[in-house]
Design a protein around this nucleic acid. Structure first.
Lengths: 216, 216
DNA sequence: AAAGTAATCAAGCAATCACTTGACTATCTG
DNA sequence: CAGATAGTCAAGTGATTGCTTGATTACTTT
């Protein structure tokens, strides 16, 4: 085997030692200070024999050091390199997890976003302030009456005016009715910009018909 | 399973991905730049299918990213966190390896140091300048004749004079003969000071008897 | 010396892993 | 469309791993 391969083999041994959740947990406890085997077993909920084996594995690659004192063997971290190594794994995992979450979110929202919001649900959530309602109809129609608190953003002006819409909250777009394409297009554009967006199931006429509050 | 355990499970996945010498080698190539599967297979000497599998593993925890361009899929490192993680493993491995080497050396030298040097071997190595020869007998005996190039360091003056003995070279101490304790004691003291030291198997009288060169 | 406690060792099991082989998919080119 | 190429998938095999159980060692206390 080449020298290079041998080197990587050595590094891999360290990786192998760090490839078990139990061992990482033990290292986490040891990062707080010296512990003996029974204490670690109690903290982790593992059997004593199992903890002992994990500690041997860690000791085998220099991730922990042992010191006997009477009956007890105290384990501890030899230096900060160990903490650095665990932290590095953590960073990679966290960054990747964040990416996974984002992807899952996007996917789920994409599915949900095809499901339009019911008027009753929208009213309830708007009252809680957890959604932004936007009206994408032409100005005349907006001025003739709209859902209370709705921001008027005609579809043609969406590109210039989307900055006024907070990105944190879900956005619900509505227009003239269930077959009005304006809100579909608004949702599509906003989603491309990174918004969580859905359509109101029906439009403003239905809202009014259902005796829900109207602002002029 | 507890949230905490789940977290460690995630970190462990990253460790697992880093627990194979082949994968670390692939990451090393990718650290130099984007590469497609066949190129990595050629560089590493692994089969294409195997490289592909390793890359899937790495991608699974976000250690590499893939980009398709025509027939080729180009892999690369998503960010410096990956390099940091590998470097952390490397550091731990290297520190530990150094310790292992030190321990093995100490052990081997300790064993060897019990084996006295043969006169013929000493003469050969002294001619090469790779050993320092010290004479620990009293001044009168040294002045009556000694091994050429030998430094006179009577046992009683060892503590004050050891600074004149280079630490890099092996030190060979001799005195009156195989049963002369002076050289044993000198060896013991010098080893405590960190020297690599052995005794000459026999002493100066035997050296002279064997017609080896003498300096006065 | 005997009893008791902390830790380790040893054997065994199911699960997982690395690697191989051969088939399959995706993409480009003639 | 057929043929070629890059990459992936799927199944199988031997080796390794994590954990359990019960025995053994190391040390202290009585």
């Amino acid at each position: 085997m080449s020298v290079k391969k041998q080197l990587f083999e050595q590094f891999a041994l360290v990786g192998k030692a760090l490839s078990s959740a139990s061992r990482l947990e033990l290292l986490d406890y040891l990062a707080q200070g010296e512990r003996h085997v029974d204490a670690l077993a109690a903290l982790s909920g593992l059997t004593k024999a199992n903890v002992s084996q994990h500690l041997q594995t860690l000791k085998g690659v220099g991730l922990v050091t042992a010191r006997r004192e009477g009956l007890n063997v105290y384990y501890s971290l030899p230096d900060d390199l160990v903490i650095d190594a665990v932290a590095a794994l953590r960073s990679v995992a966290e960054r990747h997890q964040a990416e996974v979450h984002r992807l899952v979110d996007t996917y789920l929202k994409a599915k949900d976003s095809l499901e339009p919001v019911e008027a009753e649900e929208l009213w309830r959530r708007a009252a809680d302030g957890v959604v932004t309602v936007i009206d994408v109809r032409p100005a005349e129609e907006y001025e003739a009456g709209h859902i209370p608190g709705a921001i008027h953003v005609p579809l043609g002006e969406l590109e210039e005016r989307f900055r006024s819409i907070p990105k944190e909250k879900e956005v619900v777009a509505y227009c003239r009715g269930p077959y009005c394409v304006l809100s579909f297009e608004a949702v599509a554009k906003l989603r491309l910009m990174g918004y969580t967006t859905r359509r109101l199931k029906n439009g403003f006429p239905e809202w009014k018909r259902d005796r829900l509050p109207v602002e002029i």
